[in-house]
Design a binder for these strands. Structure first.
Lengths: 214, 214
DNA sequence: TAGATTGTTAATCGATTAACAATC
DNA sequence: TAGATTGTTAATCGATTAACAATC
């Protein structure tokens, strides 16, 4: 059904998780079918955009009827890949690492967490949600044994370049990056998703100041 | 100097924190001046885009010379508003709230944290980086006393709509939103910056799967 | 002055929206 | 069948890139 191997723009991809979230919600409210128009009004975008976005991947709707919520939900989940768990390690069990480990619903997002690592003797050995924090010295072993593909980086700025290099040598090809290190620039071939919290915060600061000037 | 009150597109604004970061780095490395070309190569974008972006706010450069790093850094900081602290409260001292409170350099981002709130007796009274966690019952008092403008939301999904409504009634006009609740849709007049961690993670999952198919 | 590099206008590219024929 | 709504093509809009005159 899905049109494979076309190059889909990132603008479209970034909207998919939001569709997924709204569809989940509709499902929970017992809604069976929805038209692009109805969905567009709930999400605050145009019906045309929704149809364009979905048609990048295939014709999931029915003329005169709309989309079946449950089916569309599953299709988008499949496109996003939440049904194929990716073996993943989390590096850094400081405040941020622990929050992420506790907070995220990894299994539902296509992530299988196979290890949490830190180098501080204060945290190594402690447990976070069933995962024992392992010493960083075990990283090679765990990555090889589990064919780990993704690393989540919640580590200090200074050590990042060295660790990224090492992880890539272990075959890691994707990073969920909470540091400021510009992985994509240094290693163009890996997939990187940056979470730049301070960038986001400063964008808000900008908006607050603009508001104040008016 | 700065051209006031033009409407600057969000695409431009979202690049500013990144410029700010790179300029900080150049400063630290003792670099005095930089041309748009040199900066473009370091950042992986076009010189043209840099000049266009900066010229939304004013002519900060000098023909034939380039930009003075320190001056440009300060100008962008000023545009982003990092030099005017915005009184802010943090709601929710669970894993995520604590991580944010510990991890962020609020003062350097134009944020003045005046209170952390939670409703669980387990955390109320504990200290996070000099801030005592206060019971949610104190929120009105603190917001009024400090003319709080921004709320950081690290609270459970279920309580979010109610709390957002209450915060807006207290005069809050900006949210740094870690929940999935669609504040902007329900309250079009407030500034919202969303941190959708699971959206980001699923975007990475998508990329990993695409990669796998090739 | 000559060389370099900006600020700015014009051209291109990509993303969004509108329109409508196809079809359930 | 008639009405509704998709899938898709065409038109518009906005953002990025290229080009170059202004000027340090």
């Amino acid at each position: 059904m899905a049109k494979e191997n076309q190059n889909i723009s990132m603008s479209v991809i970034r909207r998919l998780p939001r569709y997924y979230r709204f569809l989940h919600n509709l499902k929970e409210n017992g809604i069976i079918r929805i038209s692009s128009r109805e969905l567009s009004m709930r999400m605050g975008l145009t019906a045309s955009q929704i149809r364009q976005d979905l048609n990048c991947f295939g014709g999931f709707g029915q003329q005169g009827y709309g989309y079946i919520v449950d089916q569309l939900y599953n299709e988008i989940g499949h496109i996003l890949g939440v049904d194929v768990p990716t073996p993943t390690v989390l590096l850094g069990a400081g405040n941020m690492g622990r929050a992420i480990a506790n907070h995220m619903d990894f299994e539902k997002r296509g992530i299988r967490l196979v290890g949490i690592f830190d180098d501080s003797p204060h945290v190594v050995g402690s447990k976070i949600r069933n995962n024992e924090v392992l010493p960083i010295s075990k990283i090679d072993e765990v990555c090889k044994a589990n064919k780990v593909e993704v690393a989540i980086l919640c580590i200090p700025e200074e050590v990042t370049p060295k660790i990224v290099k090492h992880m890539i040598s272990l075959g890691i090809s994707g990073f969920w990056n909470f540091t400021h290190y510009d992985i994509a620039y240094h290693f163009p071939d890996v997939a990187v998703e940056n979470v730049h919290l301070s960038d986001s915060l400063m964008t808000l600061t900008y908006q607050m100041n603009k508001r104040r000037k008016k």
